[in-house]
Amino acid sequence: MSLRMQILEAIDQNARFSTKELAIMLGQDEAAVAEEIIKMEEEKVICGYTTLIDWDKTELSQVIAMIEVKVTPQRGQGFDKIAERIYQFEEVDAVYLMSGSFDLTVMLRGKSLKSVAQFVSDKLSPLESVLSTATHFVLKKYKEHGVTLVNDNKDERMLVTP
């Protein structure tokens, strides 16, 4: 496996390893690892470092919605132009082009049901190319980015075994 892939696999689930730790764990030269990371950041292979937060455990109340959007693709620009008109909105967390019975999945974070509804009726639906929307609200997150959020995975092993 290339150094690039080794680094990506190692940091996919944990962005907090230092360059030195990564180099030790991968059995690679520290300078080479640092250089490769910078290169990937420049090439936008690594687009950012975020934190996986379970907001339900905080005082912040927020609503997450998944909106299925059907659109008319535009001549010469396919879906990209309309996707851009949608992903520019601050409220929008993610936009994916989908196969199947609708075209775009729009993930949205809002303060309340009302604010999400307002976004859909005031901003999303009026867009010229948008044919229809179907809004689904997230009730509970079980797992995100490979991490189970619902139960704390306690180490159930005995403290000392042969």
Partner: peptide, 19 residues
């Protein structure tokens, strides 16, 4: 093991099985 079990909140590097 008997000694370790007496100790609350000890952290272990003593396990012979996968995590």
């Amino acid at each position: 093991f008997d000694i370790v079990s007496e100790m609350k909140d000890a952290i272990s590097l003593g396990v012979g099985e996968p995590d």
